[in-house]
Design a protein around this nucleic acid. Structure first.
Length: 494
DNA sequence: CAGTCCCACAGATTGTCGTA
DNA sequence: TACGACAATCTGTGGGACTG
């Protein structure tokens, strides 16, 4: 018997998420294939029959660029594809796509030359640094970055073209492994996607380890070693007189010291051997090491739980409330992301929903908290009041509610789901309630932020980093018609 | 009405970032 | 580099809504 690997997988778990995720991935893959095929067609039509060598070379390297990009996409997934698509010129032209690439680079170089006068002005120490000069500096930096990346793609394309001797379109994909270092810094806004479910066998392994830890430690925590005992063990280790920190029969963990102190490392090794023995497993070194690492992480969790237990009642309640709110936002985000897949008109907004993420969703507060002070509240179901993030443009609320409407309609007519509907949330129109959460989502289009909030902040270019794009937070007529039809005249729906 | 499905919540785990 | 603090996100569970 061998233990499952620790790699995450989207298989198993919640079938609904998996099917939605699979559908999303298939659509993305189809869209990407369409783009590549469309570009190839375009290149073929643009290459004149019997044209000069440069035209032919451009066409060939264009195909090679696309092949290289598909490799990147395959290797690093959707984010990398998005990243590659984000390298755009000032007019939104994709500079990584030949044949226009060379022309774009030349234009960038000309822009740089044209901006040389600006450089002289900005380097004068007597000049004040203004938002304008900062903006220009960032724009120039961005152009340089685009130029470097474009040249990198061009070199890859040239090398690949030479290797395949011009048979890029027809040649099967070579088996040669391409080692590309994944980007260490993110380009563009953080995108939150569908949950990445762990594989069932990994969860099962984790459960067994948890179970065995309870078996060895007991629930009471009586087997905790003191800080002094851990220090004594550490000293013995330095003098070469150390023995194992404990036995499986008398298992001990030092919970007050560092989770990965020498004492706990020794205990984790004893745990791993005991685990293998208990389950009659013949484990390899790497499998034993994996269990050892996992149980060390659990020691960390034990320490945290113990610390949380020492908090005051009030602090514990606050933490629990914050946790509940975050969880509701997480679910709300998931429903809206899923709604993107339910109507063609919402699919184009999928990336924006991902960019907004969980923190971009409105929070809510229930009147649960009033129960102690307000007797009538106890007699009815709890109500939840919307708390809009204070940084978010109010106009986004109506735009987001459309996703909820489409989800709700689809759930009723298509999904065949049982169980409770998402609860109603009340928008207090008399006084706009705003979340007190100080965090905000960065790198969104500038019109996603509330103007007053943005104006009141300093160093916006460094903190909020809004993009200049004015995103259209509106829905097409067919969405409005769809919702209307479903509500007023359900038989005329999709 | 038992079984199924889903939601909300709590618990557990992992990832990220600042600091020593 | 290791650690703690905190954020993010996944899993497990109880209970309500729904279906056959």
């Amino acid at each position: 018997m061998s233990l499952p690997s620790t790699s995450r997988s989207s298989t198993g778990g919640d079938a609904r998420w998996n099917s939605a995720e699979k559908l999303f991935q298939e659509r993305q893959a189809a869209a990407f294939r369409d783009r590549v095929q469309g570009k190839r067609q375009e290149n073929r039509t643009q290459t004149p029959t019997g044209g000069d060598q440069d035209d032919v070379a451009n066409s060939t390297s264009s195909g090679a660029v696309q092949w290289a990009r598909s490799l990147v996409q395959e290797r690093f997934g959707q984010d990398s594809q998005d990243m590659a698509m984000e390298y755009r010129g000032p007019e939104g032209e994709n500079v990584t796509n030949n044949p226009g690439m060379r022309q774009e680079v030349i234009e960038e170089e000309e822009d740089d030359q044209a901006n040389e006068g600006d450089d002289e002005l900005e380097e004068n120490p007597d000049d004040l640094v203004t938002v304008d000069t900062l903006s220009r500096t960032f724009e120039r930096f961005e152009r340089s970055l685009v130029k470097i990346v474009s040249k990198g793609f061009e070199k890859i394309a040239t090398n690949v073209s030479q290797t395949l001797q011009g048979r890029v379109d027809e040649a099967p994909r070579p088996e040669v492994p391409v080692v590309l270092r994944p980007p260490t810094t993110r380009v563009g806004p953080k995108l939150t996607g569908f949950p990445a479910r762990r594989a069932p066998d990994v969860n099962e392994k984790q459960r067994l380890i948890r179970e065995h830890l309870t078996r060895l430690c007991g629930d009471g925590g009586a087997s905790f070693a003191t800080q002094e005992q851990a220090s004594a063990y550490d000293a013995a280790l330095r003098t070469g007189n150390a023995i194992p920190s404990c036995t499986a029969e008398e298992f001990r963990v030092c919970i007050d010291g560092n989770p990965k102190c020498a004492f706990n490392v020794s205990s984790a090794r004893i745990f791993a051997r005991s685990f293998a023995e208990f389950h009659h497993l013949d484990l390899s070194h790497s499998e034993l090491q994996d269990i050892h690492n996992r149980v060390l992480t659990m020691f960390k969790t034990l320490k945290r739980t113990r610390k949380a237990g020492r908090l005051s009642e009030d602090a514990r309640m606050r933490a629990k409330r914050a946790k509940r709110r975050y969880s509701r936002k997480y679910k709300l985000f998931g429903r809206r992301l899923e709604a993107c897949l339910l109507h063609p008109g919402l699919l184009k907004h999928q990336r924006m929903i991902s960019a907004l993420g969980i923190d971009g969703m409105s929070s809510d507060e229930s009147d649960y908290e009033e129960v102690r002070d307000n007797v009538p509240v106890r007699t009815r179901a709890p109500r939840y009041y919307v708390l809009r993030p204070k940084w978010r443009n109010p106009s986004l609320s109506a735009w987001l509610q459309t996703f909820d409407s489409v989800y709700s309609i689809n759930r009723r007519i298509k999904m065949k789901r049982r169980g409770a509907y998402p609860r109603l949330r009340y928008d207090n129109t008399a006084s706009v309630r705003k979340s007190s959460n100080p965090s905000f989502v960065t790198e969104l289009p500038i019109n996603a932020y509330e103007g007053d909030w943005l104006n009141a902040r300093i160093d916006v270019d460094f903190t909020v980093k809004p993009t200049a794009e004015e995103y259209s937070f509106t829905h097409d007529d067919d969405i409005v018609r769809y919702i209307h039809d479903q509500v007023v005249n359900p038989e005329h729906g999709l």
